[in-house]
């Protein structure tokens, strides 16, 4: 059901026809205007995306640095093992015979006429 008078249909048709026969130069300018209007929006969104990416990279870098400064558990275990090994080496050293003492021992035996 049309709520407007019948003659307005003819007016509408005439107006529609007038938009269908616009010249190429006008259409080109409309196209340029549309792209120009949308360009700042794309640039702004691109800047926001770039800022988001940069923030994420910084966050990752900070997390990585924080993680690297902490001594990993595996390294701590190896250090503990290393300390234990030193202790064993020291013990083993204590049990070894001193060559000078050995020489003095055998010289004494010789003086006493042998074993």
């Amino acid at each position: 059901m049309n709520e407007h008078p019948q003659w307005t249909q003819a007016a509408k048709r005439l107006l529609d026809e007038s938009t269908e026969s616009l010249d190429a130069a006008t259409l080109s300018r409309l196209n340029s205007a549309r792209h120009a209007a949308l360009a700042p929006r794309s640039q702004a969104r691109g800047a926001i995306a770039f800022a988001g990416l940069a923030s994420a990279c910084l966050l990752l870098l900070a997390l990585g640095m924080h993680h690297a400064r902490r001594e990993p558990a595996a390294v701590r275990d190896i250090a503990a093992l290393d300390e234990g090994a030193d202790f064993l080496v020291e013990d083993a050293g204590a049990d070894e015979d001193d060559p000078v003492a050995e020489l003095a021992f055998f010289a004494g035996v010789d003086e006493d006429g042998g074993l």
Partner: peptide, 14 residues
């Protein structure tokens, strides 16, 4: 948005 503007630009011009 581009499609919308395309759909109204001629009438807007007139």
């Amino acid at each position: 948005l581009d499609e919308f503007l395309k759909s109204v630009e001629r009438r807007a011009l007139r």
